[in-house]
Amino acid sequence: MTAKIAYSDVEVGTELPAQSFPVDRATLVRYAGASGDFNPIHWNESFAKEVGLPDVIAHGMFTMAEAIRVVTDWTGDPGSVVEYGVRFTKPVVVPDDDKGALIEVSAKVAAKLDDNTVRVDLTATSAGQKVLGMSRAVVRLA
């Protein structure tokens, strides 16, 4: 593990560079294939509406995969992640238009822990709604 951020250089409250991740229907089809999750709520609009959703929604695990990129891009080594957990609070609704949806992720250091690790708290929103709750990662810094 070779994080490019030093433990001694971060404080509680240090903000990580925020990022936005676009997602459209093609993204979801591709993620379905790569992950093996072919639940039709992620690609079939009529099915999604039948089960009471406003439209096709993104895989929760897709959103989780995007959010941690803010952390792994910051540390420079994806192997620096020691723990990562989220709660799926609201779905990311993905309309069938030329824009799709945007997942906006910000993060800050919430605690300095033992053994050069820090806890990072993440905030992920889409269309102004918080889509992840209790979203936390523990990462090992240099």
Partner: peptide, 13 residues
Amino acid sequence: VVHGDQKFAYSRP
């Protein structure tokens, strides 16, 4: 069933 929470704790990648 819906997916409520997800967590990982790694010894290594």
